[in-house]
Structure formats: C-alpha cells, structure tokens
Computed example of a mutant assay.
Amino acid sequence: MSLARSRAGHEGPTRGRPRSEAVERAIIEGVMKLLEDGVPLGDLSIERIARTAGVGKATIYRRWSGKEELFLDVLRAAEPPDPVLPGSSMRDDLIVLLESLRQRGLLNRSSAILHNVHAQMKSSPRLWAAYDSTVIAPRRQQGYEVLRRGVENGELRDDVDIELLNDLFVGPMLVRAVLRPESDLPADLAEQVVDTLLEGLRPASRDVPGF
C-alpha cells in the first residue's frame, strides 16, 4: 500500500498538485537515515529532515501537518506488513498472529530505526496515543475477532473473557520479544504458546478436530 493511500482515511481531500509518491518516499527515507544515525526524535526538525531528503520545508508541510504525523508514517514504513490469516482454524490464525509478533521482536533487535523510535516514542504521549490507535489497536481487534470465531466454531470454551484471553496469548510473546530482549525467540515459539494455552481452553463437551 502506498503512503498516500495509507493516510487516505485520516485526512481530507488533497489540494493543489497531486502527491508524488517518489517525493514522499524520499522524505520518509530521509527521516529513516537520521534515525539510523542515532538522531533523537526531539532533535529532528522539519528543516533538518527537508535538508536530508533534498526537498523544501513547504513540500513536507503539504503532505504532513507536523512531525508527529510524519513519524507515524515512518513507523508504518519501517514495520513489516500485518499478517494474512489463513482462516483454516482458530489455532492456525493465533499462531500466525503470534509469529508476526515474534518477527517484530526480531526486527526490533536488528533495526536501528525501530529500536531508536520505540525507545523514545513514549516520551511523546500524543505520538504514542496516535501509534496505539492506528497500529496497535487494529492488531488487538484482529486477535479478538479470531477468538470470537473460535467460540462460535466450538474450538474454544464459551465462558472465557475474550479480552483477557487475548492478553494471555499475546503476553508471553511480548515479554520475550520486548521486555526481555536477551531471551530466545525460537522458530516454534508461537506454536508452543498457543498449544500450551489451548490445552486448558478446549470445550469440555467434545474433542475438536485438529488438536
């Protein structure tokens, strides 16, 4: 998805000349270069970004209202795409969701951009709130939907709190991937987490095929 289209739902109609995706990409990559060089978010002025990207400040302001909106697009561009769920079973979908978190954990450890930005972003409550609402919340909602389908399909007990259960699945992966960056992230970690939890969450009335 292009950067211009990714923001289509968050802004009104464009005015003046059509957006140039090449220019937008140059600006995004200019910010990435500065972050890779270790420049703190607070030191990234629009003037400095424009100079690095080889554009004028007005060019940036035609596309973003300020640094926070620009930084959100930088984060979206730096992260891997959201996973496509197979839809074959709740178990399979959960494994794909947790595997995407494991991959993000590996990327955080190797990406200077994500490591730098995520470490500093919480010092800006507005930026963190925008990131949470546009990036984290949709992923959380996706997990809720997978679990609700599991209940409807008889793959999961119907007496569980879906939001709590989502935290139980996601929590171990986040601890390993984010809170304990020195810990292993083995290739089968998603399967281990999902199968361990599902062992105690299957419906008691019947055996579910595939487990």
Rank of each mutant, 00 (worst) to 15 (best):
S133T: 08
V151Y: 10
S89I: 05
A130K: 12
R148L: 04
R126H: 13
R176H: 10
V160M: 08
D161G: 03
R91I: 01
E145N: 14
D93F: 07
P86L: 08
E152L: 05
M90T: 08
R102H: 03
L97S: 12
L127K: 07
S110T: 07
R180A: 04
V175R: 09
R109K: 06
V175I: 02
Q120G: 06
D161S: 08
D159W: 01
V160A: 10
V170W: 13
S89N: 03
R104D: 14
H115Q: 12
V170D: 12
A130Y: 15
L98F: 02
R91N: 06
H115W: 08
S88M: 10
L114W: 09
R180F: 01
R109I: 00
Q142N: 08
A112S: 14
L127Y: 13
W128P: 06
N108A: 03
L147D: 10
Q103L: 14
E163A: 15
L85I: 06
P138W: 13
V151P: 04
D158C: 05
R148H: 13
L168K: 10
L106R: 15
Q141T: 09
V175P: 06
A177N: 00
W128A: 14
L179F: 12
L147A: 02
L98N: 05
H115F: 08
N116C: 10
R140A: 11
Y131P: 04
D93P: 00
A177T: 02
S100W: 03
E155M: 09
R91H: 11
R180M: 13
S133W: 15
S183P: 03
L94W: 10
L85S: 06
Q120N: 11
S110D: 09
N116A: 05
R176I: 03
T134G: 09
L164I: 07
L114E: 12
L165A: 03
K122F: 00
P125W: 04
D158L: 03
D167E: 09
H115K: 11
D167M: 11
D92L: 03
D161F: 04
S183E: 12
S88A: 11
V175G: 07
L168C: 13
Q141H: 09
Q103E: 15
L101K: 03
V117N: 10
V117A: 14
L85Q: 14
S123Q: 12
L165Q: 04
R126S: 11
E182G: 08
D92G: 12
R109W: 08
E152S: 09
